[in-house]
């Protein structure tokens, strides 16, 4: 487990990029999702969701998420359900899993271990 101070991170606390694969939009998130970065996280996911029927969020490189980040994911899930689209999360590391468990939300999200599994219909 990498400690917050051990990894070589750049000055940006969170980075988001998107790519398309087999009709799914994959959002790659890197860094820490907290009160200062969750508005950008939320906006990026909601904008991506508008343009795709299937959204997969890669959380492999997310070192930290707080309740505002979890609230953003819940909001995107609600938007996906309303528009009959699919939202899947994958690559959850220990810190992210712990927060989802503490918030008792592991069952409401579709969670997969790998990108390959996330892309399976």
């Amino acid at each position: 487990m990498t400690h917050l101070l051990d990894d070589k991170r750049d000055a940006t606390p969170m980075k988001i990029s998107t790519r398309e694969l087999n009709g799914t939009t994959i959002v790659d998130v890197t860094g820490e999702i907290d009160m200062s970065t969750s508005p950008g996280f939320r906006t990026a996911l909601l904008e991506s969701l508008k343009k795709t029927p299937r959204l997969a969020v890669n959380l492999t490189n997310v070192r930290y998420v707080d309740s505002s980040g979890i609230a953003s994911l819940v909001e995107v899930l609600k938007a996906a359900r309303i528009s009959d689209k699919r939202l899947v999360l994958f690559g959850l590391n220990e810190p992210v899993q712990e927060v989802l468990q503490l918030t008792r939300l592991t069952k409401i999200f579709e969670i997969r271990k790998t990108e390959k599994e996330a892309l399976e219909v």
């Binding site: 707080d66 309740s67 505002s68 979890i70 609230a71 819940v74 909001e75 899930l77 609600k78 918030t103 008792r104 939300l105 409401i108």
Partner: peptide
């Protein structure tokens, strides 16, 4: 309630 699909209030 914590498990409600609400947007905030989990902190």
């Amino acid at each position: 309630p914590l498990d409600a699909v609400a947007l905030g209030g989990r902190g």
